[in-house]
Amino acid sequence: MASFIQLLVSGLATGAIYALIAVGFTLLWQTSQTINFAQGEFVMLPAFFILIAMNYGAPFWLSCLIGIAVSIVVLGIAFKYIIVDPMLKHGVLPLVISSIALALFLKEAVKDFYSSQAQPFPVLVEASDVHIFGAVISSQSLVVLAVAIATVIGMTFLLNRTRLGRMMQATAQNPTLARILGVPVRRMVLYTFLLNAVLCAIASILISPIYLAKFTNGETLGMAAFLAAIIGGFNQVRGAILGGVILGILDNLSAAYLSSQYRAAFPLIILIIVILVRPQGLLGRVEERTV
């Protein structure tokens, strides 16, 4: 039982990080039909921005702020104007290819210009153990969980309770109608890109102490974001959160109780089942078929 709780909590912590990444992923899809195959690399990269800032002597908290700011510029603004915008008129497929190439580019850039080896990354709090029901839970997991939940709450508040957020949602759900209603659609699309960059940067700060900063980190994370988004529902923020959490817990439990050799396969099997049984995802809306 104790080990079960332990697995549950660490799965939840990982799942919460997946959820952050998946939310950004679905936001991009909703507002601009961007299937970002480089999403994982978008999480890998901010850790290196932060490490570079720290190499110049900045304290950790300042480096984090710098990292988030640089992410907004590079992964938000530059990504939108340089990669996405020129591709939009060509449709979904070429953009998918472009983002695959971008993922490759970012990975190789970090490998060649920073390091091919994993780098230690500072932890948010010193590791200490918390005992709950006989299970040993590290304070790290709890902090990760707390930050992730706070981020999700903050974002939900932004999207649901503010005028800006409602305009963003309107843009996501029906750009044409939103434009008629006087929503500055283009600016709203840009904001979702910025929001995605921030979410990726936060996820990066949370996950890098555990994963260690390495150029290949994006591969697993990007995959997790896809799976979470599809399992939860490609067009719903709530769905992405649910998908992320399910994925994190499932991964841990299946590795412990089923087969560690096939641990990577279980989420994929769930994915295939979801696609077959409920293609819009657990919480998704049915989208009209776009040919």
């Binding site: 290949t216 697993t220 412990a256």
Partner: peptide, 30 residues
């Protein structure tokens, strides 16, 4: 475990459950 695996919590839980005299670890550096 997988090459490039990041999360070892499930594996360590299993190791603890096994109650062996000794753990032999044979993985890459990271």
């Amino acid at each position: 475990t997988e090459a490039g695996q990041a999360d070892f919590s499930a594996d360590v839980v299993k190791l603890k459950g096994a109650n062996a005299d000794l753990i032999f670890a044979y993985t890459n550096e990271e």
